[in-house]
Amino acid sequence: MPVLPIRHDSWTTRVAVACALLVTAAAPALAGKVTGELELSAPAGKPPLRGKAYLDRIENPYKAPRDVDPFPYMIVVLEGDAAKMPEPPPQEAWDLVGDRFDRPLIAVVPGSEVLIRNKGRGTPTLMIDGHADLLPHSPLNPRGERGFKAGAAGTLYELRDEDTPHITGGVVVVATPYHAIAMASAKDARKGSFSLSDVPDGTWTLRIWYRTGWLDGVEQTVEVKGSKTTSVSTIKIPAGLPTAASK
């Protein structure tokens, strides 16, 4: 391939570089936003009783207990043309904020580094079930950090503390960076919402990952055009939250 004898200090070069920067900077602005609502077909039910001690737990007599909130465990993912995928982010920070992670489930793309930051007081010894070599087997001190590299898409990393049973979290590897964690509605516990930004134009398939697998019966096709916000019709989550992995 012939190389043009362009002088770097010429004004044409400077203009070309400036145009290129402008085009690059303008590209995300052309990407669209995808929002939507989720609705549970049936109440999620009472939270499971974990670690019963001497007594059965007693319902507070002044106000009915809350149902379990499944939305933090739901990740809405847009899957599409691999050619439109940007470079994977180098790092995904995940904070341990005491006796839990700030998000119980996160999604990363293949090759990302998951950086665990201990912002609590404890010194958990974190480990990943089935991937003992990914994290060093030693306590993570307060303010300490620890990371591991995500593998292939579809992999689920389940982290837990060796010393305490309640510190758990999940990292699911998805093929696309266009994903978001659902948020419960403040007014209605059965409703949630999501918002994805910087989605390139094109046709995407919306899927939802719940805890350990893809939810069945919730896939949708989403058309994204320009910088407009695309609203997805309310997605009905089947009762019982059936996942492919649970079948």
């Binding site: 939270p47 001690a53 007594l55 737990r57 007693i58 207990p65 809350r66 379990v68």
Partner: peptide, 10 residues
């Protein structure tokens, strides 16, 4: 978690 959800327990 149970207390925040509205339960008394030990």
């Amino acid at each position: 978690d149970d207390a925040l959800a509205g339960y008394l327990r030990d």
